Structure formats: C-alpha cells, structure tokens
Computed example of a mutant assay.
Amino acid sequence: MSASLNERVIPPPPESSDSRTFRRGFADLIDGLYNWELWLHLGWTDIKQRYRRSLLGPLWITIATGVMAISMGLLYGKLIGVPYSTFLPYITLGLIFWNFIQMSILEGTVVFSTNEGLIKQLPAPVSVHVYRVVWRQLIIFAHNVVIYLIVLAVFRPKISWEALLFFPAMALYILNAVWITIVFGILSTRFRDISQLMSTIVQLVFFMTPIIWMITPTMKQSMGTRTKLVELNPLYHYIEIGRAPLLGEHVEFYHWLVVLGCTAIGCLVAMVIMRNYRSRVAYWV
C-alpha cells in the first residue's frame, strides 16, 4: 500500500542561482575575515614599502598632516575671524577624518587593478584585498591621531562623556570604508575611468565640506537658510559624527540618521555588486 499523503516526504524547492550567488558573495566576506593574518601582513607591508629607506618612516604621515593642519588653521582662522584655540582643533580633526575618507575612496578604486599579479596567483577571497586597504587606512589614521593628542594637550578643549561617541563613529567609518572599497574597486576594475572621475569629485567635495572652514554665527546671519545647503552634502554628516565628540560638542541626532542611512544603502549596493561581479574581478584586472 502506498504511503499516506502525510507520510510522504516532499523535497524542498531547488535553491535559486541568485540565492546561491548571494551566499557566495557573503561567504567571500566571511572567508576574508578568517584570513586576517594575510591582510594584516599585506597592509603593514604596504606601509613599510611606502617609506622604505626613509629616515622617519611612517612618521612622515603625521608630519605632513600636522603641517597642513597648522598652516591652513593659521591662514583660514585669520580669514574667517575664529580664534586659533577653537579653529586649530577643528581643522585638525577635520583633516584627520577627511584623509581617512578620501584615501579609502581613492585607494579603493585601484585596489584590484594595482594587485593584478597577487589576485591571479594567490587563491584568496576577493575581500582580502578590501580589508587590506581598510587596515592600511587605519594604520595611517592611528599615526594622524598623534596630531590631535598634541592639539588636545596645547589647547585643552572641553571634553565630555560624549567623546565616547567616537568609537561608534569609527565603527561606521570602517564599515563604510569596506563597502566603498567593494563598490568602487569592482566597478573601476571594469571601467578604469571611474578612478579618475572619483579623484576629481573628491577634490571638489573637499571644498564643499566644512573642513578648512566652518559655519560661524556671522555666516548664519548673513546667509540665513542657505547655510542648510551644506547639509545636503552627506560627507558633512560623516565628519560631524567623528569630529564633534572629540571637540566636546553635541552631535545632533539627524547626523547619525543620515550616516546610518547611507551606510545601509551602501552595504546593500556592495552585496549586490559582490553577488553579480565578484567572480569576474580576476578576468578584468
């Protein structure tokens, strides 16, 4: 007698190819994290190679950023009429966070094209090269933080418990650096003009973002609601969530909402690109 309907085993529906491809893209990110020793070593080697046979080595990173912060701080502080004790910490932190964002974008666009030999010879997840770029930027960021510590000791801005918001802000910076490197790295590997385009756009956005200038009360009175145009720039919100807590200032909640929204959208786009084009990187480089 045949088995009853309740006793029959109904096989699960076949898994779609899109679902399997999506899982492979996510698995690549996980596998890359498991290969942490590899990308930690590669990122640190990049820093050593860049400053090989240099007398001061990576300290040139700190010196270059410090000289830029001091020179621009003295010049623009005088022009906009802001005391140096206020403007120098402001511009120093702005440049430190901007350098992390800028280099994550620019080096992310060439992460695969500049590692062609390694990608073709080393059977490693694509995400290893992504984590390598982010780790390298964190090393540079750590060198630049020394400048802020010096400024903190000299000008002594009023730091409150809100300074602890730096840590979730930094976590968002890292997460954004990952998806930015994935998106622009893969796309610029296929379309090499993207790296040149992003270089131009980043330079333009730098001057549109309150980094070497600030929105003073005088500017608000003279421009009125037109100062709200600054808030249309998403990088302004990224800078604020990192800079304001370390200056002892309150961070408005809408800054966090904008950053979280951009992060969610960016991660979604990165997963779609990983799903569709991850396997083609080795052929495009």
Rank of each mutant, 00 (worst) to 15 (best):
W161T: 15
L164W: 08
V110A: 13
T109F: 01
R156K: 14
H143A: 11
L165S: 07
G108A: 01
V128E: 00
V128H: 04
A153V: 08
P157M: 05
K158R: 15
T114Q: 15
V126G: 06
A153Y: 09
V111G: 02
V154G: 03
W161S: 15
K120N: 07
V110K: 13
I150W: 07
L118P: 07
V151G: 01
N144A: 10
H143P: 09
G108K: 00
S104Y: 04
V133D: 06
V146H: 06
L122H: 14
M170T: 12
V145T: 10
L152G: 03
M170S: 12
L149A: 07
W135Q: 11
V110Y: 10
Y131D: 02
N115K: 13
L106Q: 11
P157L: 04
V110E: 12
L164A: 10
F141S: 06
T109A: 05
Q137P: 02
V146T: 11
N99T: 12
L106N: 11
G117M: 03
V154A: 05
L164P: 04
V110S: 14
K158F: 15
T114C: 13
W161N: 15
I105H: 04
S104N: 06
V133Y: 06
N115I: 11
Y131M: 02
Y131C: 02
I119G: 00
F141Q: 08
A169P: 05
I147Q: 03
I105P: 01
V110M: 12
V110I: 14
E116I: 11
L118K: 08
A169R: 03
S104R: 00
V134M: 01
N144F: 08
L152H: 05
F112E: 00
